[in-house]
């Protein structure tokens, strides 16, 4: 069975690195006694994969991981069992079965929605100006290589909410993805500040259907 877990991580647990989080989930799945499938080979390990890595310092209420089981399981019971094994700061939002024929979670994920809180007024002003532009080039360093990319087209939707937060929907796929910290960096650079900070919460990951409609990953649950 192909199982997908929607999870949250909030508070200081945002400071865990991707590998740490992966290890945490493997252990939680073991403690919950779910019959997860292991890889073949000399050092078998549980295969779990995440929809998209979550940067250190970023919280989430809508991230996903998947794994296979060796036998069919009762999803509601498994969801409850896994929830009980979450360390503080982590939560299981939902669990569902995915069609084995659809692609890997990572390939399905196309866009991400974020909530930005607690930023300075200068950042808000910068975002307003940014949204008026057609193009905004920034330098991004990845694996030691610096590339200049246009981040404006990656922002699909950006709304100032009544509570003062920003709702931001961006590209989040293998070919194009925008980490909101890049916006903070760009804004800081343009305002001549050392840094700008905000609380960043990933709210949802989306896939795009064949007819172009946006759907949260949970919509794919069988």
């Amino acid at each position: 069975m192909r199982i997908c877990v929607k999870f949250s991580r909030e508070g200081f647990s945002k400071y865990l690195a991707h590998l740490d989080m992966q290890r945490m989930f493997v252990r939680a799945i073991k403690r919950a006694d779910l019959p997860a499938k292991y890889s073949a080979g000399f050092n078998p390990h549980m295969n779990i994969s995440f929809a998209y890595p979550l940067g250190v310092g970023i919280e989430t209420r809508g991230d996903y991981l998947e794994f296979f089981t060796t036998e069919d399981i009762d999803i509601a019971a498994a969801e409850q069992a896994l929830r009980l094994q979450m360390p503080e700061g982590f939560g299981v939002q939902a669990m569902g079965e995915l069609d084995e024929k659809t692609g890997k979670l990572m390939a399905l994920t196309q866009q991400a929605e974020y909530r930005l809180e607690g930023f300075c007024p200068e950042f808000a002003a910068w975002v307003q100006a940014f949204l008026q532009k057609d193009s905004y080039m920034v330098e991004r360093e990845r694996k030691g290589k610096v590339r200049t990319i246009d981040i404006r087209p990656m922002v699909k939707e950006c709304v100032f909410l009544e509570d003062g937060a920003i709702r931001l929907r961006v590209d989040n796929s293998g070919s194009a993805s925008l980490n909101p910290t890049l916006l903070l960096k760009a804004a800081a650079k343009e305002s001549g500040k050392d840094e700008m900070r905000a609380r960043i919460i990933r709210m949802e990951l989306y896939t795009v259907t064949e007819d172009g409609a946006l759907q949260p990953i949970t919509a794919l649950f069988a």
């Binding site: 200081f12 400071y15 690195a17 252990r27 250190v56 094994q85």
Partner: peptide, 14 residues
């Protein structure tokens, strides 16, 4: 965010 391996300073492990 300014230090190496911040995960070691947060506690609240299982």
């Amino acid at each position: 965010p300014l230090v190496e391996k911040p995960g070691r300073y947060i506690g609240n492990e299982l």
